[in-house]
Amino acid sequence: MFNTKTIRGREQRTAWILIVPALLMLLFVFGYPILRAFWLSLFTQNLGTRLQPVFSGFDNYSRMAGDGRFWQSFWVTIIFTVSSVVLELILGLAIALILNQKFFGRGLVRTSAIIPWALPTALIGLAWAWIFNDQFGIVNDILLRLGIINTGINWLGDPTLAMFAVIFADVWKTTPFISILLLAGLQSISPDLYEAHSIDGATPWQNFRQITLPLLLPQILIAMLFRFAQAFGVFDLIQVMTGGGPGGATEVVSLYIYSTVMRYLDFGYGAALVVVTFLLLILAVAIASLLLNKLRARTSGTT
């Protein structure tokens, strides 16, 4: 199988020997549950069947097509994902650009910038729920004192405002992660390039557009991919802050699946939901990484 006469052949054999345990591990930890979920999604297993699995083919999937609550939650997930990822990228890039400048106390600022990301999400959710509380929340307090509003706003009780609040909290928590990632990318850009460009007469904006952005693109795309997958599966933050309310306005897919399985005990249908979301996510990630590879090949120029 391997030509052990050549160095490359031997190295490949060693590589396989080293990689097999990890592959087996992945197969058990990821492969098995995914296949099991798919298998389960072909059965009806809920209170109606006294929790006994009854084979029902693709019934669960056709039921999903007419499930308004599922599509609603899917839509909510997309809104949440897109707005938080876009905001985080813009803010994260801005912060990274600032942290890349020399200023007094930069080390301290860099270190403390990562703190929000390091805190447990459930705690952050709790804190933000209090911050946005309509009676005792600090946001209302500040707005009242500034005279911008006369009566307290019910942030988490209004569908639009609740969505805004959870996005805000998520942006607050994960922007540091993105900015640290982008900062690493910025630091790998040689200052010579900027100097050469400004001798040629470039303005700071032209420097940013023609040097920073193209050379930072791989990091931006990686951050986007990471955050996209993470935001799509968001659970803890929203569960703690709004529990999906009010009236399903912030109910993302993972929250819906959670209630289907854990509250309504509809295991078969829950499994079908998982499978469909999983496939959609895989599709999105596949497209994104394809783009990523193409762009990276184009920008690095070393292919």
Partner: peptide, 30 residues
């Protein structure tokens, strides 16, 4: 940028994401 000087850097400082012709043209485009 307002001195109209051209400099060759010790490290060359070529733009890695641009082709040779884009590298040559970048100063003129600006």
């Amino acid at each position: 940028g307002d001195r109209n000087m051209a400099m060759v850097f010790q490290s060359y400082a070529l733009y890695p994401h641009m082709t040779v012709s884009e590298n040559l043209a970048s100063g003129l485009k600006l």
